[in-house]
Amino acid sequence: MEHPQLWTSAWWQDSLALQAYVEASVDPDDAKKLCADVAEKENKPWSNLFETSSDDQLWWSLTWISCDPTNTRYITRSKALHAHVLQTWNASYCGGGVLWDSELTYKNAITNALLIHSSCELYKVTDEEKYLDNAIETWEWFSSSGMINSDNLVVDGLTEDCVPTGAPFTYNSGILLQSLTSLYEITSNKDYLSNATNIAIAALKRFQATDAPGILADDCCVSFDNCTCNHDGISFHGILARSLAAFVRAGGDVDGSVASALTYNAETAWGNRDVDTNQMGIAWEGPVDKNIDPNDACVAQTAGLQLLTAAGM
């Protein structure tokens, strides 16, 4: 079925908006109430939560954990979404990994990076070894798949012939970075942190605005005057910012450069906000587009909120 949306034009971005609100909220009770309201809506008109792409399901798996890692109802939902995606694991297609789309024809980076991340987070809240095993197995497959190129950037996916394909996006690097950071936190294996460091450095070097060096940007928004992102692309750099913050918290930012980059981005985005509404724009180095579609404005605000939270603002 087609899922009714809450605030954005995509079910997965609704999960990001909810997660960002929960993590930025200064009132835990208010955040819990919003999560409960959303959960109640899912139990009524959204009778089947599995008829979407696998990555959408995993975004929500992570968001329910963020809502309340002690809430049995949320963890049960998170586990169900994770398990449904894991059913698409296919060793006959490129040796492993889960599939992305409803036609089960594409194996991509974001879905498998999210599977590692979701597995790690479920292990943290359940202590069930199978989730750690899922995370490690998926990473071992991912690391040999070719989706991490020689520049330590993560390309979009694999062709049917298992050839790496597609451009790198900020969120692919971000979620894999956060997955490796989680694996390091769980296992204390410094190989995971070393790989995470390589990806973080590469992402900060590659994803910069041409009109504002140091400001995180995807290729769809290389400058304020050349910003053509669709509703998906608007959110990507906020995901990278959140992931970089996790890397900093885990002790990976040895020289402080990642934390400094997050602070610079956050101060720039906040400084360019609409002071009447506190709305932030798509391109953090420029002002808000007053004609932006309301759904896209919510996505842009979610990305901005992720950035501010990542920088501790």
Results as ranks from 00 to 15, higher is better:
182 S>M: 09
189 N>L: 09
164 P>T: 02
155 V>L: 08
184 Y>M: 10
139 W>E: 02
159 T>V: 08
154 V>L: 05
128 E>L: 14
138 T>Y: 03
158 L>H: 03
161 D>W: 03
181 T>W: 05
185 E>S: 12
152 N>I: 00
133 D>Q: 14
139 W>F: 15
151 D>K: 15
130 K>R: 13
191 D>Y: 05
195 N>C: 03
140 E>Y: 04
158 L>M: 06
161 D>G: 12
171 Y>A: 06
131 Y>G: 02
171 Y>W: 11
145 S>G: 11
184 Y>N: 08
194 S>K: 13
148 I>H: 02
163 V>L: 12
190 K>L: 13
171 Y>T: 06
167 A>I: 13
142 F>H: 03
191 D>I: 12
187 T>M: 07
195 N>M: 09
185 E>L: 12
139 W>C: 04
181 T>Q: 07
152 N>D: 13
155 V>W: 01
182 S>I: 00
150 S>V: 11
173 S>H: 09
144 S>F: 10
133 D>K: 14
167 A>Y: 14
195 N>Y: 08
154 V>E: 01
157 G>M: 03
146 G>R: 00
180 L>F: 08
135 A>T: 11
150 S>N: 12
157 G>H: 01
134 N>Y: 11
189 N>D: 15
170 T>Q: 10
158 L>K: 01
168 P>E: 09
164 P>A: 02
147 M>H: 01
147 M>K: 01
132 L>M: 12
148 I>W: 00
162 C>I: 02
134 N>W: 04
145 S>P: 09
188 S>F: 08
168 P>F: 03
194 S>F: 09
196 A>G: 06
170 T>Y: 02
191 D>P: 01
139 W>D: 02
161 D>T: 13
155 V>Y: 05
127 D>F: 11
170 T>G: 11
143 S>A: 14
130 K>S: 15
173 S>L: 02
135 A>W: 08
184 Y>I: 11
180 L>S: 07
188 S>A: 14
180 L>D: 03
127 D>T: 14
150 S>R: 12
143 S>P: 00
171 Y>K: 01
153 L>I: 09
153 L>W: 03
192 Y>E: 01
156 D>W: 12
189 N>Y: 06
151 D>R: 14
185 E>R: 12
144 S>L: 13
158 L>R: 00
169 F>Q: 10
186 I>N: 05
173 S>A: 13
183 L>D: 05
176 L>D: 07
162 C>F: 02
172 N>H: 09
163 V>N: 10
136 I>S: 01
172 N>D: 10
129 E>A: 15
183 L>Y: 02
147 M>W: 00
138 T>Q: 07
138 T>P: 00
148 I>M: 10
193 L>Y: 03
150 S>K: 13
169 F>L: 14
168 P>H: 06
130 K>N: 12
183 L>T: 05
169 F>I: 03
179 S>L: 06
185 E>V: 11
182 S>Q: 13
127 D>R: 15
168 P>N: 08
184 Y>R: 11
188 S>V: 10
159 T>S: 14
176 L>H: 04
187 T>C: 10
152 N>W: 08
159 T>P: 02
168 P>R: 00
195 N>P: 04
186 I>A: 08
146 G>K: 02
159 T>I: 11
193 L>G: 01
